[in-house]
Amino acid sequence: MITYAPGDTPLHRLDPRTKLFVQAAVAVAAFAHTTPRGLLLLTAFVLCVCWLAATPVLASLRTYRAFLPFLVAAPAVEGATLGAPWFVPADAVTPALASYRVLLLLLVSTAYIRTTRVRESRAAIQWLLPGRAGVVLGAGVGFVLRFLPLLRDDLASIRSAMDARLGSARPLRERVRLIGLTGLRRVFARADRFALALQARCFAWNPTLPPLTATWRDAPATLVGVALVAWAVA
């Protein structure tokens, strides 16, 4: 889910710089408007973005399910008390809204990743941040976006292999330990193979990047980004 999906949606056709700008504007707005009403408006916007990007919301959230316990834990811990009444709902509201805000940002990021080729992201980053810093950041983002899907596939294959031999019958702790240890070994092995592939194909810090050309389609998207920023600072 968190990898580029070829397509011809309105978001696929946007310049990656515009998409990065709108993404940043959503983040700014989400941090500025932390009230339920503000987040409700942002939710509507984010759902609209996902729809335009043909990004399935539930499947995207399932992809992040490993992080969801942390998002739930924050308000739970904040609201908990050591004595009666044991839980104060009012204390949990602010962290719950913050956790919800994170979910919205994850969804916008997923829509970006699914509609933007890695090399386009790299070109946009290097355009935004010229010089060596941009090269390093662009290459770093490229590595992460290329490596993470491989890692997820590896973890999924470990889980499938366990299930195929009735590993799901084992206690939860045992399963977590097996997936954790095997996963860690696979991470290192996968990193080695990934590095080898990059070497074999002449990895360069300064490759030819795709040209970035903004079109008339970027104008409304840019206006939306500007509106979000204006809303945030108003």
């Binding site: 580029y4 999906a5 080729r117 890695v118 899907p149 990934f194 080898l196 592939a197 074999a200 194909r201």
Partner: peptide, 8 residues
């Protein structure tokens, strides 16, 4: 698959 570095 060990040699692929892009999605498409």
């Amino acid at each position: 698959r060990d040699g692929f570095v892009a999605a498409t």
